[in-house]
Write a protein that binds this DNA or RNA. Structure first.
Lengths: 217, 217
DNA sequence: AATCCTCAATTAAACGTTTGTTTAATTCAA
DNA sequence: TTGAATTAAACAAACGTTTAATTGAGGATT
């Protein structure tokens, strides 16, 4: 077997694991489920990854960089105004999270019960890096006297949390969007994305605009 | 054994189950864990609840009404302005969710993987009821020409999601709040609550105020 | 007042599965 | 022919649930 084929097989297992763990949780997914759905022998998972927990670590590592780069580019871009950057930030995160819906749910769900220090620290590090990038964008707008003073980590929490509240509760989201009970991920995303984007852009404009009032009257 | 003692025992099991499931998830918690921590015999859980899944149903039923009443009162109160109601709404939800942190996480986490139709429908019904109450408050403010037109379900998502993003990722939240790694729930709540409240009140004011801009410029 | 009866509460033990992981044998391309 | 890849089988432990025996308080009978 060639090296490429081996990598493909490893990745194939990771992608299948992402599907299943994203749907049923880490403890709700057995290595037999993963092996069966991936069409590989049960022992291959220990062979490739060592253990079920290390499979999860490998999955996080595999997807960890999925947001890197774009945020950096956004920060470096001198032609965009801070407002444009906020709009692009919203578009980027809504699209990114909704197209990686399964992995995003894993990141949020499995970070509650700290399985291992490595996994916990890895997840925190990813979130911190994102926070730093967004902080720069907002501070840029503040220096240019366009944005007012806001609690940046909480603002990022509002941005991510709004999206997460609909990724983590699909049946509820379907009800809100007037969709059927068991609509597929693609349909859900296509209905949800524009509504989330419109809301978040409007929310962020009102929240950040230095001309707007935000303090108790 | 008296009826009161029996109820106490049943409730005690539910409270212990809430702790463990909130910490380790439904699949990450065994009935043996629950029985041991509650100090009861393993078989008592089947005896009282029938099965592990029905224990979860009983837990949701036990805590389901924990937000009811207060929202109704808020709506009926004629002396409060819509802005006051929004402030109280924020205070109420932050306090409610942070003091019922474990149960809140269960509600959000277990609603992803639909275990049974009963549990799924129960969770959706609870969320829908909350949405309706908040909708009335916002519509009241709109009729009085204080609030602008906003996407109400998305706004509620922002409110809940912001809070959830910090309840579901305590290690990350500790980092943000500059707390130690393993701080107890009470300390976490006392540091997080005022910051969440201040941010959300400011956010909601800017978002809802009819005088503010929210559209793309 | 002492005895018996009843039935819910409680227990230890066992049930049959399923779990993650390992072993030892086999395959097969280089 | 070598060694990595793959397999079926087995492993012990943990799982949710059930069983059958025991306890013990409360009402009825003598």
């Amino acid at each position: 077997m060639s090296a490429a084929e081996k990598t493909d097989k490893r990745e194939h297992i990771l992608i299948v694991a992402e599907e299943l763990i994203g749907e049923n949780g880490f403890d709700g997914t057995s290595v037999r489920d993963i092996a069966h759905r991936a069409g590989v022998n049960l022992a291959m998972i220990s062979y490739y990854f060592g253990s079920k927990e290390k499979l999860l670590e490998a999955l996080i590592e595999f997807r960890a960089g999925y947001s890197y780069g774009i945020l950096e580019e956004l920060n470096k871009d001198q032609t965009l105004s801070p407002w444009d950057k906020i709009d692009r930030l919203v578009d980027f995160y809504v699209d990114k999270i909704l197209t990686n819906l399964r992995f995003h749910n894993i990141m949020y769900r499995e970070s509650i019960n700290i399985r291992s220090d490595e996994i916990r620290d890895r997840i925190i590090a990813i979130k911190m890096r994102n926070l730093e990038q967004i902080t720069r964008i907002i501070q840029d707008g503040q220096q240019k006297k366009l944005f007012r003073e806001v609690d940046i980590p909480m603002t990022v929490g509002s941005l991510m949390g709004t999206i997460s509240s609909y990724t983590q509760a699909k049946p509820y989201g379907c009800q809100i969007l007037a969709l059927g009970y068991d609509v597929n991920d693609e349909t859900y995303r296509s209905k949800l994305a524009p509504r989330l984007k419109a809301h978040l852009k409007s929310l962020m404009r009102a929240h950040l605009d230095i001309a707007n009032l935000g303090l108790p009257r």
